[in-house]
């Protein structure tokens, strides 16, 4: 991991010095242990603040939207797929972006870290695939692999799919088959159980919109939640309004979601919102053989069609 940081700094500094890019989007160390902050490096000196470890949970493609300058961007596998999506959807042009690709071994889940620590985390260190957290009560160490985010556990593309300057050699992919256990568990329930399950799942939602704002796919000039003529959804804590919001948010990501997990990482109430987007991701694969963001020249699943798409449900 230290290796990654050094390489990222060196590559970014060179890019900035040569004028190939105007800025580099990466991470700097956060003010709290276990949290890093997205950071815009504008000078070679800034590049020395860049870091990389297993606490880079947000998707940096989110910070690319509408940029007019030449951008270097540090990207893990899922971020790179969203950069592709951005290029396809013309949020940024391919020529503008220089991807500094980070082969990713997964990000730690904030809740799992909290559970490991069992209290206020004072320091967090990472070495040799182990994470050590220190609290007032003492120190605890665990394998990083036991602390991964749910989306990282099932990740199929740890290596960036668009990679101009690799920050390190590719890592072996750990999964070869799609793991849909979480979704299938819900599918196996009865209809009423499923309705109740999602009512409970979403019950803590405060409508802070961290899930949509952390999502690189959410860039509409006016989000449907802000539309007023007509107003599609109420803004309060009514459970049907909350459900409408989450259903439509997930649907807007259909065929575009790379399962980067930024939404869940951002949610302050720890709501597993991926259980909605994940269903659509699964459907897209099963129905249309589609995986989002793998290339920068194919339109996403809902923006294309074939004449023989499934239609057994249409009368």
């Amino acid at each position: 991991m230290i290796n990654y940081t050094e390489n990222i700094r060196k590559i970014s500094s060179d890019l900035l010095k040569s004028g190939k890019v105007d800025v580099v989007i990466g991470y700097k160390s956060g003010t709290l242990p276990g949290v890093n902050e997205p950071f815009l490096a504008k000078t070679p000196e800034d590049a020395d603040k860049l870091v990389w470890d297993s606490q880079c949970r947000l998707n940096l493609a989110n910070y690319l939207t509408h940029r007019k300058d030449k951008v270097g961007i540090v990207a893990k596998g899922c971020d790179s797929r969203n950069i592709n999506t951005h290029i396809v959807e013309r949020r940024i042009s391919r020529e503008q972006v220089t991807v500094i690709g980070v082969p990713c071994t997964g990000m730690t889940d904030k809740t799992r870290l909290k559970e490991l620590a069992g209290g206020d985390i004072l320091t967090l260190t990472e070495a040799g695939g182990k994470i050590t957290v220190k609290t007032a009560k003492g120190e605890k160490t665990a394998d990083k692999n036991d602390l991964l985010q749910d989306n990282c556990i099932r990740c199929l593309h740890r290596n960036p799919v668009i990679n101009d300057i690799p920050a390190a050699d590719p890592v072996p992919e750990v999964n070869t088959t799609r793991n849909n256990d979480a979704i299938e568990k819900i599918e196996a329930m009865s209809a009423d159980e499923r309705w109740a399950f999602f009512d409970d799942l979403l019950s803590g939602c405060t409508r802070c919109y961290a899930c949509k704002n952390a999502c690189p796919l959410c860039y509409c000039p006016t989000c449907f939640v802000d539309e007023s003529r007509p107003q599609w959804v109420g803004k309060g804590d009514d459970p049907v309004d909350v459900r409408t919001y989450h259903t439509l948010r997930a649907f807007h990501c259909a065929g575009r979601c790379t399962d980067c997990g930024a939404c869940e990482a951002a949610c302050p109430m720890n709501i597993k919102v991926r259980l909605l987007t994940g269903k659509l991701e699964k459907s897209c694969y099963e129905r249309f053989g589609w995986e989002a963001g793998m290339t920068s020249d194919v339109r996403p699943a809902l923006d294309t069609f074939t004449t023989h798409d499934p239609e057994e449900f249409i009368k």
């Binding site: 902050e37 997205p38 950071f39 815009l40 947000l58 989110n62 910070y63 405060t206 409508r207 802070c208 919109y209 961290a210 949509k212 704002n213 952390a214 109420g234 803004k235 309060g236 951002a266 302050p268």
Partner: peptide, 24 residues
């Protein structure tokens, strides 16, 4: 730069008091 402009801070905050009025 890093701020994603969500409402996490304002809703968690004990002193943030802004409100919106809606007719339904």
């Amino acid at each position: 730069f890093a701020c994603i402009n969500c409402g996490t801070c304002t809703y968690a905050c004990p002193t943030c008091w802004c409100f919106d009025i809606q007719d339904e």
